[in-house]
Amino acid sequence: MVTLSSLIVMVLVVSAVLGFISASAMFLIWWERKVSAHIQTRFGPMRVGWHGVLQPIADAIKLLCKEDIVPVGVDKWVWWLAPFFVTVPAVMAFVAIPFGKNLIVQDLNLGILYIIAITSTGIFGIFMAGWGSNNKYSLLGGMRSAAQIISYEIPLLISIITVLLFSGSLSMQKIVTAQAKYWFILNPSLFVAFFVYIISATAEVNRAPFDLPEAESELVAGFHTEYSGMKFAMFFIAEYTNMFTISAIAATLFLGGWRGPLLPGPVWFLIKTYTIIFVLMWVRWTFPRVRVDQLMGFAWKVLTPISLVNLIIAGWFILK
C-alpha cells in the first residue's frame, strides 16, 4: 500500500519533473530566440545576463505582473479552462519519457500509446481557447488547428506503429532495449517512418512551416489572440513542452533513446532530444509557411499513403 514515505518520494519526483519542464521551456524560449536571431544575422537578446540567458526569467516576471484582460462576450468557463486543458496533458506526458536506464518516472506498459493519447487531448484546450474567445481570428485559428492536428495524427500514428513492429512492445524502456544492436533509424523502412514522424510531429505542435493556426500575417496570433499575462504564458509553456515531448519520442523511438557510448544515459538522451529540437527550429526559420489549401492535401494525399505502404513493407520484412 501507499505509505507516507513513498508518497513523499512521489511528490518530490513530480516536483522535480515540473521544475525540469519549466526550466526546459524557459531554456527553449531563449534558445529559439537566439537561433532565429543568428539565422537572420542578428544577435537576439543580449542585455539580461550573459548573451541574454536570463531573458526568459525577465519575461516570466513581466508576464506575472501583466494586467489580465478578459474581453467582453467570452464564454467564461471555456475561456478560463482552456489553459488548463493545454498545459496539464503536456505535463502528464512526462510520466513515461525515459531519460535514462532507471531514470523514468514510471515505465508504463502502455508507454508510447499513453503519451500519444494524453498529448492529443491538448487539442481540446486549443479549440476551447479558439471558441471561447469570441474573436473571429481565434475561432479560425482554433478550427484550423483542430483540422490540422487530427489530419497529421494519422501518418504520425502509423509511423509509430511501424516502430512497434520491430520493438514488439509499447513500453518505452523495452523500445530502447530493442535498439541494443542498432538504432532503429538505420533500418530502411524505419528511416522513412522517421521522416514521416518528424514532418507530422512538426504539424502536431503547430510549428512552422505548418504554423497556420497562428499565422501572424492573417490571423494575428490565432487561438491565443485574446489571452494575456499568465494565461498566455501557459500556452507558451505548453507549446515548448510539447516540442520537447515529440523530440524525446523521436529520440527514443528512432535514435536509440538513452543508449550511447562513454557518456551516461541521460546525457545522451538530452543531446539527441535537443539536437532534434534544434533541427525543428532550423526548419522554422528557413522555410516559408505552407498555404492552407496545401496543408490538408499534404497530410492525406502524401504522408498517409507513404506511411501505409511503408507499414506493409515493414510487416513483410518482419515475417520473411
Binding site: 513530480v14 496533458p89 502528464m92 514510471q106
Partner: peptide, 11 residues
C-alpha cells in the same frame, strides 16, 4: 498509474 493521477493533480 498512481503517478499519472499525481501528475494530473500537480499539473
Amino acid at each position: 498509474y498512481g503517478y499519472v493521477g499525481l501528475f494530473f493533480l500537480f499539473g
